[in-house]
Structures are given as structure tokens and as C-alpha cells.
């Protein structure tokens, strides 16, 4: 799985999920409130980022300057976020409960930003990139 593949796939997933939440904010808020009361929801919110983040980071861990670095950092961040959610469930739960109404629009905003960045990396940055001297 190259960083291009990850960027295309995860970019598309992020944008679709973000748009889905954005145009169904009422349902997303109900789901978030339900998630706050459910222990397994917290675990899932930690397990999924660990799986996808570690897969991404195992395949792309370049720290050279460029878009590869961005993809490496996204993978690493997902792993750390997942580990935090799994290890510190109560702390995570407290934060979620405090901001439960703000989470869907914020999820949508960051999902859109992340998705658009990844789509650019996956589909456009390779076209404009020149790998020669200089």
C-alpha cells in the first residue's frame, strides 16, 4: 500500500463520511449522545484508528520533506489517538460528554479538511511533482 493509495482511499472515505455527517447533523448528534452512554463505542473509536493508523504507518513511514511526511504523520497521529482512547477510556469519555453536541460538526469539518488534503496528495500532487534534480 503506497502513500498514494492510502491518500486516495482514506481521502475519499473521509470526505464521504464528513459530508454524510454534515448533511445529517441531527442524526449524527443522536448517534454521538448514544455513543457517550456506550462503553463498546469508545473502544471501537479507539480500535479502528489503531488498525488503520498502524497499517498506514507500517507502509509509509518516510520522514523526508514532502507529502509522504504528511501521510506518515497522519498514520502516526491515528495510532496515538487510538491508543489514547483505548488506554484512557474514562478521560476520553469525560471529554466526549462535555462536547457531545459540538463533536458532529467538528468531525465533519476536520473530516472534510483531512479528506481534501489526502485527495490532493493522492490525485494531484503526483501530477505536478517533479522528481529530477534541484
Amino acid at each position: 500500500m503506497s502513500y498514494i493509495f492510502f491518500a486516495r482511499w482514506f481521502g475519499l472515505v473521509s470526505v464521504l463520511l464528513a459530508l454524510g455527517v454534515l448533511f445529517n447533523l441531527g442524526d449524527a448528534r443522536r448517534m454521538a449522545r448514544h455513543l457517550v452512554k456506550d462503553e463498546s463505542g469508545y473502544i471501537m473509536a479507539g480500535v479502528l484508528p489503531i488498525i488503520f493508523g498502524s497499517l498506514s504507518f507500517m507502509h509509509n513511514h518516510s520522514f523526508n520533506q514532502g507529502w509522504e511526511l504528511a501521510v506518515s504523520l497522519i498514520g502516526l497521529f491515528m495510532v496515538f489517538a487510538g491508543v489514547y482512547r483505548v488506554l484512557f477510556v474514562n478521560h476520553w469519555k469525560k471529554i466526549m460528554s462535555r462536547h457531545v453536541d459540538k463533536i458532529p460538526p467538528l468531525f465533519s469539518l476536520f473530516g472534510l479538511m483531512l479528506g481534501l488534503l489526502l485527495l490532493y496528495i493522492g490525485f494531484f500532487s503526483t501530477i505536478v511533482y517533479y522528481g529530477g534534480a534541484a
Partner: peptide
């Protein structure tokens, strides 16, 4: 080479 790099910078900044 220089023009390629300049276009890359232009597109990256726009993105």
C-alpha cells in the same frame, strides 16, 4: 526543472 518546482509550489500552496 525550475519551472516544474515552481508549479509544484504553486499547486501545493493553493491546495
Amino acid at each position: 526543472v525550475v519551472a516544474f518546482k515552481e508549479r509544484q509550489l504553486l499547486f501545493d500552496c493553493i491546495a
